[in-house]
Design a protein around this nucleic acid. Structure first.
Lengths: 255, 255
DNA sequence: CGTAGCCTTGACCGACGTCAATGATGGTGG
DNA sequence: CCACCATCATTGACGTCGGTCAAGGCTACG
């Protein structure tokens, strides 16, 4: 998913509750329960009854569906602060699955409580709409990309998008060094990324083989660097040029 | 876009306002102004200041963006009853354009009024979330499809989706025979569809040429029939089989 | 040391895009 | 009623991006 509550509200000025911020990890009046998901474990699966929504506290999750050929299509990644499973608000059963890329901690809210609270607190609804709008923008962007762009461009864009979202997330929801996403993201101020290529492939609708080839190409071109520690962004401007990274929706503009 | 207010609320039971329905063409307390768009004319364009949201009253519209190569990617079609331009709720300027496929009549609501009303009337927010969820489902579905499916499957799915949405729309928002979408959709109880192939191509990320070829194939296989009057669905079950049309999200299940 | 993930690389092939020419169709004006 | 034009659809030739299959390497971990 990928909807971050607090700053969405803060940014919106001129509203009754402008500047008011909602703590996504403990939304007023709603009882929340903590949930842990181990690496490669599912938080929920397609078909499960959908009676909770979640917010990522730490770790990295992703939502996906299988198409009829059994191929996995990743819908989106979820960083700390992001919502997961909002479809529960409108449907009895999940139509997608969510799994963890690393050990992840989340908080769960009952759908009934959440819905009630939306009625009592328009600001929450409002925040929801903001978050969903962001999600919408990311999806349409990806749709355009998947439909038309060549693989190198798609991948470059993906790398930048992830970087941007990870940075934003870690700014807004810093985690103690101990539980830091060390396995996956960020090292000090600098940034490098460790994701299985299969994740990239399934997100962008490419084959693993082709992702590998394309990453090698980007490596040769000096745009990135790849070690066992993960992908390092070596030439940001070059990447942005390749990805045509400008005029991107405001949410993604960090960095 | 594509978010239909009234039944969204009706379907949701157990809520304070279950059964209450909102007339999308005249939302309580909000002043609305009628808008007409001629065929091939833009309702608004990328970059325009976004201070209204719209609901389609009659006709058929579509939203799109250009990617950097100048290629048009259609995001979605909008049928009577569907919302258009909800991004105005969260952004100062539109990031997509909307154009009319036929002469279309819409109603416009000022964003400020609409937002205010969302605060006063949780049911409206609620409806909004429902509508957006539907949109989300359609988009992810298309994303999965665009990423993986071969052209014939994509097209078959698209044809079915359009049919389904058109039928739903005309059921919920019947129009007088005079203004009926005769140019495009529906003929009596039966259904046939007249859309430029370019629309199909730009929606699914295919080239016009390939759409033409693929439609010819579908014709040969007896699944559809194509005349100057439009596409006629000749073998619905065959189409569904090809499109793997089952377990589709509930919104699309009509027909 | 062996096994399991994950990544890389090569050979091959097919789906789909591009270019370009040719055909319908329908609307407009003389 | 016909000439003309714009729009849209069809068809063929050709190239390429990216998928599939298959084999082999690199860590990492028990």
């Amino acid at each position: 998913m990928g909807w971050r509550i607090p700053e969405a509200l803060k940014e919106r000025s001129g509203q009754a509750d402008a500047g008011k911020s909602i703590d996504p990890f403990s939304i007023c009046n709603i009882s929340s329960s903590p949930v842990s998901v181990f690496k490669s474990e599912n938080l929920y699966s397609e078909g499960n009854s959908a009676d909770h929504v979640y917010v990522v506290r730490s770790g990295l999750c992703f939502s996906f569906r299988y198409d009829e050929d059994g191929r996995r299509q990743i819908i989106d990644l979820a960083f700390p602060g992001d919502f997961i499973g909002l479809e529960a608000l409108t449907q009895a059963r999940f139509v997608s699955s969510v799994s963890a890329l690393t050990q992840a901690e989340l908080v769960a809210y009952s759908v009934d409580d959440f819905t009630r609270q939306c009625y009592d607190e328009p600001a929450l609804s409002r925040a929801l709409v903001e978050c969903i709008a962001k999600e919408h923008a990311i999806l349409t962007k990806r749709l355009v990309g998947v439909a038309h762009s060549p693989a190198d461009q798609r991948i470059a864009h993906f790398l930048l998008e992830i970087r941007s979202r990870a940075l934003q997330s870690s700014k807004l929801h810093p985690v103690s060094e101990g539980t830091r996403n060390r396995a996956l993201i960020t090292a000090g101020g600098d940034f490098n990324l460790k994701l299985p290529q299969a994740i990239i492939a399934d997100t962008l609708g490419l084959s693993i083989v082709h992702v590998s080839r394309t990453l090698s190409k980007l490596k040769e071109e000096g745009l990135i660097e790849d070690s066992s520690a993960g992908i390092r962004y070596r030439n940001l401007d070059g990447l942005k040029a390749l990805a045509l990274w400008e005029g991107i929706s405001p949410w993604l503009e960090a960095g």
